[in-house]
Amino acid sequence: MLWSFPHCPNETDWSINWPALEAEFNWLRSLADCPQDPRYHAEGDVLIHTKLVYEALVALPQWRALPATERSVLFAAALLHDIAKPASTQREADGSITSKGHVLQGAKMAQEILWDLHVPLKQREAIVALVKYGSLPLWFWDKPNPERAVIKASQIVRCDLLSLLAEADVRGRYCNDQAQLLERIDFFREFCQENHCFEQPRMFPSAHSRFVYFQKEDGNPNYEAYDDTRLQVVIMSGLPSAGKDTWIQENLPDSLVISLDELRQKLGIDPEDDQGVVTNAAKAIAKEYLRSGQSFVWNATNLSRQLRCMLIRLFASYQARIHIVYLEAPWPELLRRNRDHPAKVPEKVLYRMKNRLEVPDITEAQVVDWVVLG
């Protein structure tokens, strides 16, 4: 069954049902009366801008030509692209209006909203990525390494869709430099095409070459890295009760497993206490396996990219091949499983963990699997 976002226009009717959208989504109504700097957004508040972006997007022939699911993904991203501005907007001492940090904060808010709407994982993360990288077509050339910036983005979200969202964003504002901004987007499209990453992810000679490329800041995407890995580490990722133990039992029943939950119980550490002792004990066991060349599973929540990267650097330094398995369950099902679990996590802790969640992407490891259970 194809997924579609509520009230997304289609070929039978390209009109936008604003009353239905505002009635269904109270967070959309929160954009009203949020001011913007008139030098860059003379059209008015954030809701006015969002409506203009929508109208611009739906009018684009390239958007109308997309398959229905991709149209919905872009439509949702346009709806959410400035969702964090009300929380981050402030008036500076010189009278200017800023909204610093609204992009990253907006990506997190979008993930929460879409999860509550039961948007499927693949489409949800595509929308979140569009919100997160939506301004890249305008500013990619200012990055320290523009080539790496667009190649990385292409692994996570389609750059042609990014360019359409950016174009709609620019056409949905009143500003003196609109023509120059549209030129930047055209330059972005050409640059992505030159780097073979416009309508598809940039391909690498191998999965290991891709992994090596993203471990460095100045790598060559054409370099075929010699695969010197001698063992595999499977890093589990997912909220408590997402099904990590079950997945390991069903897919890797004979593997060595380092379980932080088991170590936590053995050491008598509460989930809300400092986990440093547990982590250090787990790393000590892991180093024994790594030194002896034994493959193993690292079973923990591993919710943040920063934490996963620290582990990956450690394991890769011992020539380990990294395989991340991310598991997810619908939120009501996850809460039910947690309540029935003998070592259940306090729900307030579970909600905090959900807010910290960063779903792994393919730039982190040689292999990444995303599994929805239940």
Rank of each mutant, 00 (worst) to 15 (best):
F198H: 07
Q200S: 15
M203E: 12
S206L: 09
S206N: 11
A207L: 13
H208E: 12
S209C: 07
F211D: 07
F211K: 12
Y213G: 03
Y213K: 07
G219V: 01
G219K: 10
G219T: 03
N220K: 10
N220C: 12
N222G: 00
Y223R: 06
Y223G: 03
Y223A: 11
Y223V: 05
E224K: 09
Y226R: 02
D227Q: 10
D227F: 00
D228I: 01
D228P: 06
D228F: 03
D228C: 11
T229M: 10
R230Q: 07
R230G: 01
Q232R: 08
V234D: 02
I235V: 08
S237R: 11
L239A: 05
S241C: 15
A242R: 11
G243Y: 08
K244E: 13
D245C: 04
D245L: 07
W247I: 02
Q249N: 10
Q249P: 02
E250S: 05
N251H: 13
L256F: 08
I258P: 04
I258L: 12
I258E: 01
I258Y: 06
L263Y: 15
L263V: 04
Q265M: 14
Q265E: 15
K266V: 12
K266N: 14
L267W: 14
L267E: 11
I269L: 10
D270T: 13
P271Y: 12
E272A: 14
D273N: 08
D273T: 02
D274L: 09
V277Q: 14
V277K: 15
V277P: 04
V278T: 13
T279C: 06
N280Y: 09
A282Y: 10
K283W: 11
A284V: 02
I285N: 01
I285Q: 09
A286N: 06
A286H: 05
E288F: 10
E288K: 04
Y289K: 00
L290F: 13
L290E: 05
R291D: 03
R291N: 05
R291I: 09
S292M: 06
Q294G: 00
S295Y: 06
F296N: 03
N299T: 03
N299P: 06
N302D: 02
S304D: 06
Q306F: 12
Q306T: 13
C309F: 00
L311W: 15
L311K: 09
I312A: 11
R313E: 15
R313T: 15
R313M: 09
L314D: 00
L314P: 09
F315S: 01
A316R: 15
Y318F: 15
A320N: 08
R321V: 00
R321D: 02
I322N: 04
I322T: 11
I322H: 05
H323S: 00
H323T: 01
I324H: 12
I324T: 09
V325H: 06
V325A: 04
Y326D: 01
Y326V: 02
L327D: 02
L327Y: 11
E328A: 05
E328H: 13
E328K: 13
E328M: 07
E328G: 02
A329L: 01
A329R: 07
A329D: 01
A329W: 03
P330H: 03
P332Y: 15
E333N: 09
E333C: 13
E333Q: 11
